[in-house]
Amino acid sequence: MRSGFRSVHLGKWIAFTVLTCALTITSLPSQVKAFTARNLIYGSEGYDVNELQGRLHLLGYYWGKNDGIFGWKTYWAVRTFQYNFGLPVTGDVDMATKQALVKATPNWNYHMDSNGGTNSGSNAGGASGLSPATVVAGDGFSHGSAGLSASDLNLMAHVVYGEARGEPFEGQVAIAAVILNRLHDPKFPKTIPAIVYAPGAFDCVNDGQINLQPNAEARRAVADAVAGWDPTHGALFYFNPAKTNNAWMWARPEIMTIGHHIFTD
């Protein structure tokens, strides 16, 4: 009898606690998410950039997608905001800019953005809180660089992986560099796909290995080649001496050997 009374009492207490908690949570004002301590610059990615874009959009400065990538439109929006609010116009988001933004948008919350619902994770405080766009970049380039499109870069990564996986890293960069050297040479077609798919130009196209999924190392090799690393110093051709008996290829002036490939002028 006594234990039954205790059970009823305990049940009431639990019900009261749950109800109180629920009321407390629902009566709280919508949480205003604040920036983390890190500065943001062109090229930054992550939830902080989502917040930056959301606040700038609320103020009417930003009209692009809220994608968490600090691109040109975000950069220009930041500059305009900085100019209008009397801040140094740098395009970089430092503490002063963040404070001014937060002050100017007290009612902002992440639910206001179309993709804000996905941003409420604990990653917000992390220095490297990566956006979904970066996850896409893990499988391939999501945006272009140095005048080349993302599909050009991805195609180059396929060639590098198909032709030189297992070679030392500079050997992989060298394959990408040869493609870029051809792009800048008047003897070759003017686009990356035309260079890659020119009949007989690359063995990996002939044997289908170009369709293999490139790994991160191949993508890194492409990125380094696009950034200017040319271990071949201007080579336009290369061949594997163990597999080639093409007379004119052997007759080309050799520049250097990297891994299993001889690179020629």
């Binding site: 008047p186 003897k187 070759f188 077609p189 003017k190 035309a194 260079i195 798919y197 020119a198 009949p199 007989g200 130009a201 336009l236 051709f237 093409n246 004119w248 290829m249 080309r252």
Partner: peptide
Amino acid sequence: NDLSRLPSNISADHNMNEFLH
């Protein structure tokens, strides 16, 4: 563009392409 669709591994010269370029 037409030339880029012809077999390219016959010679390193590519003089036709250079002429057009």
